[in-house]
């Protein structure tokens, strides 16, 4: 294992580096900025959709995310991996401000979407969540019809004016989610009457119906069997053409299969980020290596 620079010292003996975000006056990230970070690997990308800089999250006293900086690239999949409780979900939920709904959660740092601070007071969370969609670990379709599930987003955001437009959106979303053939004859049937894998694809269809820019997925396949998982993975690979996707997974093979970049979290810190094949074949940090070789976690 090769340590390329001094920021990759062992965690416990890491020197206190001042972690300041270099940003220009308007709050936008400067191109080619210098980021002081303890993370090994390449945290920045060219033209990121979303960027996080020195993000810290506290749940009351608990410091759940520590100085995480990372970019999310367009038209690609980034996988978050790491042992249970390391803060993957917490960080993911920062990206569309779902942590706002948790009473004692406190988020600090800068997170931008297309260069605009999403925690800015002028940023409307409703609008943000229309642009950054989310798919949850457990399939959670609304207890309504399949049609209504997909139509809900476009409806509340006022994206359509006619029933025909809505039908169109529902159909294309279900098609993109690879569910159309299976449900086209039972659109009025209950969404919760589908199988687990179908439900999860319905949730994905629901998320893409509002045409977001980023889709966040928190362990989307953990409740699915291998066949359903394969379908969802294929789907993620297709969706990559149009969306930026962030996926949390406990399944190393899945991360290797679907993602272009992988980020390894450990105890609230972002240890290493890099191209997926490099992370899995040649991790640069010892903790990453320990984790992916199954020595702990």
């Amino acid at each position: 294992m090769s340590f390329s620079n001094d920021t990759t010292l062992k965690l416990d003996s890491r020197p206190e580096v001042p972690r300041t975000v270099v940003a220009n006056a308007s709050g936008e990230m400067a191109a080619g900025e210098e980021i002081k970070t303890a993370t090994v690997g390449q945290v920045t990308v060219a033209n990121p959709v979303m960027s996080a800089r020195t993000v810290n999250v506290h749940y009351g006293e608990k410091h759940a995310i520590k100085d995480v900086s990372i970019d999310v690239a367009n038209n690609s999949v980034i996988a978050f991996i790491g042992p249970s409780g390391c803060g993957k979900s917490t960080f993911l939920r920062c990206l569309n401000r779902m942590n706002d709904t948790i009473e004692n959660a406190r988020v600090e740092g800068l997170i931008t979407l297309d260069g605009n601070d999403i925690y800015d007071r002028r940023q409307d969370v409703v609008q943000l969540r229309a642009r950054v969609g989310m798919v949850f670990q457990k399939p959670n379709p609304f207890p309504k019809s399949i049609y209504e599930n997909v139509a809900y987003g476009p409806r509340i955001h006022g994206l359509v004016t006619s029933r025909a437009d809505l039908d169109e959106i529902v159909q294309t979303s279900l098609r993109k989610a690879g569910l159309w053939e299976e449900v086209k004859d039972r659109l009025d049937g209950p969404g919760t009457g589908l199988s687990g894998g179908q439900q999860q694809r319905l949730c994905i269809a629901r998320a893409i119906a509002v045409d977001p820019e980023v889709i966040l997925m928190d362990e989307p396949c953990s409740a699915l069997d291998p066949i359903a998982t394969a379908k969802v993975e294929d789907l993620i690979d297709e969706l990559r053409e149009n969306y930026a996707i962030v996926i949390v997974t406990h399944n190393m093979q899945q991360a290797a299969r679907v993602s272009q970049r992988t980020a390894y979290f450990h105890l609230g810190e972002l240890i290493e980020v890099g191209p997926t094949d490099q992370i899995f074949t040649n991790p640069r940090h010892r903790l990453t290596e320990d984790y992916i070789t199954g020595r702990f976690g």
Binding site: N96, M98, T101, V125, V126, Q127, L128, R129, A130, G133, M134, F136, K138, N140, P141, F142, P143, Y152, G153, I156, H157, C203, R206, A207, V210
Partner: peptide, 24 residues
């Protein structure tokens, strides 16, 4: 999970409650 689903879709809190929580 129903609340989360609605909020995650960008429903406002009132919408999440009126559309999904109250009927249940």
């Amino acid at each position: 999970s129903i609340r989360e689903a609605a909020l995650g879709m960008g429903a406002s809190r009132v919408q999440a409650i009126v559309h999904h929580v109250l009927p249940l």
